[in-house]
């Protein structure tokens, strides 16, 4: 009986704290994206502005985000019948957007970031029990460009 109690408690904790944390994170992401709107970032390789480049350097930034207990549990249930797992869509969305925000923050002196690549990988170990992915890493890298004035 006590085991069910613990599971119910963890589910409730995951549900309330997890959704609060997620909406807070989304608000932060939106605020930061607005703030960094002035720095153009593209995944073009041959950007026309590159001819005026004064200096270029590599920027890399990554973020690891974990899923809460409730959503992992729900995802495990959905896995039985299949279908759209929207709770994981928001997880990867948050991770990627956060990685790009950090990349732009790191390249503050730059006028432009070109050739951005995004990569995602799941972090194994105890976070990966029961075959469900517990946490993912989003890596963003690109070349920051300082233009000649």
């Amino acid at each position: 009986m006590i085991e069910y109690g613990i599971i119910a408690f963890l589910l409730a904790l995951g549900y309330f704290v997890g959704s609060w944390a997620e909406s807070r994170h989304y608000r932060e992401i939106e605020k930061n994206e607005e703030r960094l709107n002035t720095l153009p970032a593209t995944n073009l390789k041959n950007h026309p502005e590159l001819e005026n480049a004064e200096r270029t350097w590599l920027v890399t930034e990554s973020v690891v985000i974990g899923q809460d207990y409730f959503k992992r549990f729900v995802a495990a249930l959905i896995n039985i019948v299949g279908g759209r797992v929207s709770s994981y869509e928001t997880l990867v969305d948050r991770a990627r957007r956060e990685a790009i925000i950090r990349l732009k923050d790191q390249a503050k002196d730059a006028d432009l970031i070109v050739n951005i690549r995004l990569e995602t990988s799941s972090i194994g170990g105890s976070a990966n029990r029961k075959g469900t992915v517990g946490s993912i890493e989003a890596l963003a890298y690109g070349t920051a460009v300082k233009l000649r004035k």
Binding site: G14, H25, G66, D68, E98, G134
Partner: peptide
Amino acid sequence: ASLKNLVGGELKGY
């Protein structure tokens, strides 16, 4: 990380 994994969010250590 496994504690943090209960509530989700960024795992800064990782």
